[in-house]
């Protein structure tokens, strides 16, 4: 049986990882804020935690005078997310 991933398991981080895993392109901060249902500050904290674990990568782009942050999932993050989904399916007795 797969093991639970304590970093990804938290509700907002689970949404962030789910969103990043589903899109072929990096997502911007505003899109992730919308899909994860967090505030700017909370989202920043969750992103730092995921980045620290090596699950996501962040890049900044200047658009005029404003910085725009793009977030993408790393190969390690994708593996960890899929392993966590497998763990959830194991509990439910689902076959992937």
């Amino acid at each position: 049986m797969s093991a639970s991933n304590d970093i990804i398991h938290q509700q907002h981080r689970l949404r962030i990882m789910a969103a990043l895993e589903s899109d072929r392109n990096p997502l911007d901060f505003a899109t992730l804020k919308s899909v994860s249902g967090t505030t700017d500050g909370n989202l920043g904290t969750h992103l730092q935690k995921l980045e620290g674990a090596g699950y996501i990568a962040m890049t900044k782009e200047m658009v005029g005078r404003r910085a725009r942050t793009w977030i993408s999932i790393t190969p390690e993050g994708r593996r960890a997310f899929r392993a966590h989904v497998a763990f959830l399916n194991d509990i439910l007795g689902n076959k992937e």
Binding site: R15, A18, E21, S22, D23, L27, T31, V35, S36, V85
Partner: peptide
């Protein structure tokens, strides 16, 4: 939660 988020994305 995952399914809803991915649909929304």
């Amino acid at each position: 939660n995952i399914e809803t988020t991915q649909q929304r994305t």
